[in-house]
Design a protein around this nucleic acid. Structure first.
Lengths: 236, 236
DNA sequence: ATTCCGCACGTACATGTGTTAATGGGTCGG
DNA sequence: CCGACCCATTAACACATGTACGTGCGGAAT
C-alpha cells in the first residue's frame, strides 16, 4: 500500500516536471495538480476514442500511442505519448482527440477537470496555455514525421525517432545518460515509421552492430549520439 | 487597364467565397476585404520565409507551395496553397509561417491588416475565427499526409492528392465538372509525395491510361472519381 | 528562325523494402 | 515442468521504387 502510494506521488512529480518546463506553476497550482483525481488503465486498453473531448487529461505515467486504422487493416501510428503529454493538445482549437489512444504500458491518467476549489478557473487557464505550447510542438512533430516518411530512408527514420524520443523523455527527467525505458515493439515501430516489421528488425540490427545503440532489458541506450544525428540529419 | 481591374475584382470574389464557406461575413466586412490592399508577386518568388508572421495574409489568386529543404538538397513540400488559403493558418497559436512559401504561378496576396476604418477590430476577429477553422483542416491534412506517406503506394498517394486538390478547389468555385487548373510540375508532385520524378511520371501515365484522369493544356480532369476514390481509400 | 531551356516522357539497371515462412527465446499460466 | 503465446530474428524471394541516363517537345528570349 505504502509503496503504491509513493509510486503515485512520484508519477505526479513527473507530470509536474513536464508542465513546469513549459509554463510557470505557482505552489498552489502545483498542489492542485498533485491532488487531482487520476485513473489507472492497464496495458493495451483504449484510453480515449477518436472524437472524445479530453481537454484536460494528461498522461502521468506510462506510454501510449495514437493510432488510426485503414480500411485494409493496416494502421498508421501518428505518434507516441510519454508522461507529461496531454491527450488532446489541440483541444483549445475545438479539436477533439484525433485518433484512438491506446496504452502501451500500464498508465495513469490525471484529469484536472475533477479539481474543485476556488482557483480552478485560473488553473484551467494555465493548462490551456500548456496545451497551446504542446500543440506547437506537435505541429513540429508532424512536420518532422512528414519529412521522415517522405524523404528519409528506413535507417534515417529510425535514428530520427530514437533521438526524438530521447529528447522528449529527457525533458521530463526520464533518461539517465542516454538511456531510457523503451516499451515499443518492433511492430509498433513499423506502423509508426511506415515500414514492415521485418525491415524494422533489419534496421535495428544494423544500428546495433554499428555500435550506435544498445537494447537490453526493455531499455534503450544511445551509444553514439553524434553519428546518429549525422545519420538522421536530426535538427532541433 | 479595365481588364486588369476586372480580373482583380474577380480574384477578390474567390477569396470571399473561400472565407464565406467557413465563417459568416457581413456586407460590411465583405466590402472591407474587397478593398483591402494587395500585392502581386510573380511565379517563382518567395512569398514568405520561415519564421515570418503573416497572420492576416491570404492568397487571393494563384497557387503556392510550402517547402522545407534538407541538408542534402532534397526538399519536402508539405502542402499546396490555393486561392482563399491563409499564409499562416496557425498564427493564433503564436506560430509563424512554418516553412518557406513559394509562388507556383503569379499570385495576388491580400493583407487585411492594411485595412483602416472603425470596424477593423471586429473583422480581425472574424479572420482569427477563419484561421482557426483552416488550422483544423490543416491538422486533418497533416494526418492525411502522414497516412499517405506512411501506408500508401505511389498510385494511391497520387490519387489521394488529386482528389484532395479537387475538393479544395471546388469549395472556392475553381472547378468545372471535375476539371481544374493544374500548375504543378511532376517534380513538385514528386517532392510532395516522397517519390522520384521518374516514378511520378510512371504513376501519372498509369492513371491516364487507366482512364481515371486526363491532362490537357495545363488542366487536369478527373474522369472516374469513383474508381479513384476506391483506389486511394479517400475519405472525407 | 535559331537557340536555349524547362519539362514531360522513356529505358535500363540497381537496390531498398515488402512478403512469406520458419525458428528460437522469453514469459506467463496451468 | 509443460504448453501457449508474444516477440525478436533470420532466410529466400518478389517487386516497387530510386538512380542515371537520354530523347523530344514546346515556349521564351534573342
Amino acid at each position: 500500500m505504502r509503496a503504491a502510494h509513493d509510486l503515485s506521488i512520484r508519477r505526479r512529480e513527473t507530470l509536474l516536471k513536464g508542465m513546469s518546463a513549459v509554463v510557470a506553476l505557482s505552489d498552489d497550482e502545483q498542489q492542485q495538480i498533485r491532488t487531482a483525481g487520476s485513473e489507472l488503465r492497464e496495458k493495451g486498453s483504449l484510453i480515449a476514442e477518436d472524437g472524445e473531448h479530453r481537454r484536460s487529461s494528461f498522461l502521468a505515467s506510462g506510454w501510449a500511442l495514437r493510432q488510426e486504422f485503414l480500411a485494409d487493416g493496416r494502421r498508421q501510428i501518428s505518434g507516441f505519448l510519454i508522461p507529461g503529454d496531454p491527450l488532446a493538445p489541440f483541444s483549445y482549437l475545438g479539436e477533439p482527440v484525433s485518433d484512438g489512444i491506446v496504452a502501451i504500458t500500464p498508465v495513469e491518467i490525471v484529469d484536472v477537470t475533477h479539481i474543485g476549489g476556488p482557483r480552478s478557473a485560473r488553473l484551467l487557464d494555465v493548462i490551456e496555455r500548456f496545451n497551446l505550447t504542446v500543440a506547437r510542438d506537435h505541429l513540429q512533430f508532424y512536420r518532422n514525421q512528414m519529412i521522415r516518411l517522405g524523404c528519409h530512408s528506413a535507417v534515417q527514420r529510425m535514428a530520427h525517432l530514437l533521438l526524438e524520443l530521447h529528447s522528449r523523455l529527457m525533458r521530463v527527467g526520464l533518461t539517465s545518460d542516454g538511456r531510457y525505458e523503451f516499451p515499443l515493439t518492433q511492430e509498433m515501430l513499423a506502423d509508426a515509421l511506415g515500414l514492415s516489421v521485418v525491415h524494422v528488425n533489419r534496421v535495428m540490427k544494423q544500428l546495433r552492430s554499428a555500435g550506435l545503440v544498445q537494447q537490453t532489458g526493455g531499455k534503450l541506450q544511445i551509444l553514439n549520439r553524434k553519428r546518429l544525428e549525422q545519420l538522421s540529419e536530426y535538427s532541433e
